[in-house]
Nucleic acid binder design. Structure first.
Length: 419
RNA sequence: GGAGAGGUGGCCGAGCUGGUUUAAGGCGUACGCCUGCUAAGCGUAUGUAGGGGUAACUCUACCGAGGGUUCGAAUCCCUCCUUCUCCGCCA
């Protein structure tokens, strides 16, 4: 959510930002409603003051045993008048907040304009592996352990089922990643995998992404589409001390996405599935330091790929590719040797105070003064299926075996997988 | 699922037989006094949001959320959310 003062002062900025993000908003409608509401509030406050005074007089007169029928009658009348005005204000309020919830965050000034074609490659690392043979895609390499038909029988198409070494590899990776983060000072969180609408609204999956999430109608809950939701919401409606910042968290969750309307596009194998596993990093930061924190998160995530020796590149997303809530976002893409393309494996975003305002997450400045909104950030660290794709495809050898990175080999108890 | 008890300002906590409480008191915090230093002590201030004023200031709302009763609701009634205790069921 954006600051109302900004909406009033710089409506054009807000409108332009929405256009850049391909969101249709009607800022003029908001401005009109806001003005009407404030005018009504002036009337209401005057009437309330009148009623408060009358009530006090009634109270005093009654205590003294005097008759207060006149004041009571007057108060009854103002009460009726108030009820009418209050009804109108509450209509304005719900319209206003409905509109505000659908206004996207404003991109930072250094975010390139345009569509995904305008994304900027910030840097690359590693060399794309060369093969003396035609490298296979992961669905061939994993045909015995990755069983989409079985998953389909259980849950439906585009769910995945791992058996044997694939299941074990995934578990090993999750465990290693969490260790990697906690060793860097993050606090590990194991949170619910479902969330109520309020939580989804705070992190801004709602209202926009309603159709992309699985809803448990029976209990009015959603399956989390990312760990960002439960981990960030841990701090919803909290007032922190400035010295509590930064708050650095990490946690594992499955991610459930309906991927409505994305059938037939890049969704063979593990590329795009309805449930995937992910380790997420979340950070609550002082507003003056979110910029550095953003880069720190990015480099931390990229560092994991260096340990795993997977070539990657980092993209600074253009305005049109930026998510609803983000002010600035870097994607990390890794190389898939079997498909010969880049796969997004991490998305590291700075939301500034956009989520904090929705979720009422504040800190008390050390020098005194009013509580201020924190900045929230998060980044995948990392998403599992595409990481597995890359490990398996890039590690394949002429004899059909798969060579594992040292750190994973140690944990798996073998440096080569024989599929 | 059944029964009961709670949800009050950053935290704790009174008020809950409706009207000098426009929320007592404490802790914490800030400033001042005192002190060789620290602690203690004393004094003052200290919720959030919105509106008005150059300004000290002032007005309105908010006591889990929403609705109702009433001239007037933290206080009474209803619905929902949530925490705790006991019972039942269950991994």
């Amino acid at each position: 959510m954006l600051d109302r003062k900004l909406l009033r002062k710089e409506p054009q900025t807000v409108a332009d930002a929405a256009t850049a993000k391909n969101e249709k908003i009607d800022i003029q409608q908001w401005l009109d409603a806001d003005r009407s509401k404030r005018e009504l509030m002036l009337e209401i406050e005057a009437l309330r003051k009148q009623r408060n005074t009358l009530s006090k007089t009634v109270s005093i007169k009654k205590r003294n045993g005097e008759d207060a029928e006149e004041e009571m009658q007057k108060s009854r009348n103002t009460g009726a008048e108030l009820a009418d005005l209050e009804q109108r204000v509450s209509e304005f309020n719900s319209r206003l907040s409905e509109m505000e919830l659908s206004f996207p965050n404003i991109p930072d000034s250094d975010v390139p304009e345009g569509t995904e074609d305008n994304n900027v490659i910030v840097r690359s690392w590693g060399t794309i592996p060369e093969f003396s043979f035609q490298p296979k895609p992961h669905w061939d390499l994993m045909s015995k352990v990755f069983l989409p038909e079985a998953a389909g029988k259980i849950a439906g198409s585009n769910f995945i089922l791992f058996r044997g070494w694939a299941a074990r590899l995934q578990r090993t990776l999750i465990s290693w990643m969490l260790d990697y983060h906690t060793q860097a000072g993050m606090d590990e969180v194991w949170a619910p995998f479902v969330a109520r609408p309020e939580s989804m609204t705070a992190t801004a999956q709602l209202p926009k992404m309603d159709d992309d999430m699985y809803r448990i109608g029976h209990d009015n809950l959603y399956l989390v589409p990312t760990g960002e939701v439960p981990i960030t919401n841990l701090y919803r409606d909290r007032l922190l001390e400035e010295t509590d910042l930064p708050v650095r968290l990490c946690g594992y969750t499955p991610c459930f996405r309906r991927e409505a309307g994305s059938y037939g596009k890049d969704n063979r194998g593990l590329n795009r599935v309805h449930q995937f596993e992910k380790v997420e990093m979340v950070r609550l930061e002082h507003p003056d330091r979110s910029e550095e924190a953003h880069l720190e998160l990015l480099n931390h995530a990229a560092g994991m790929l260096e340990v795993l020796d997977i070539p990657y590149r980092i993209l600074l997303l253009a305005t049109g590719d930026l998510s609803f809530a983000a002010a600035k976002c870097y994607d990390i893409e890794i190389w898939s040797a079997g498909q010969e393309k880049w796969l997004e494996v991490s998305s590291v975003s700075n939301f500034r105070d956009f989520q904090a305002r929705r979720g009422n997450m504040k800190y008390k400045p050390a020098g005194g003064g009013k509580p201020r909104l924190v900045h929230t950030l998060n980044g995948s660290g990392l998403a599992l299926p595409r990481l597995i794709i890359s490990l398996v495809e890039n590690g394949q050898q002429p004899d059909g075996t798969i060579r594992l990175p040292k750190i994973i080999a140690e944990r798996m108890g073998t440096d080569v997988i024989k599929p």
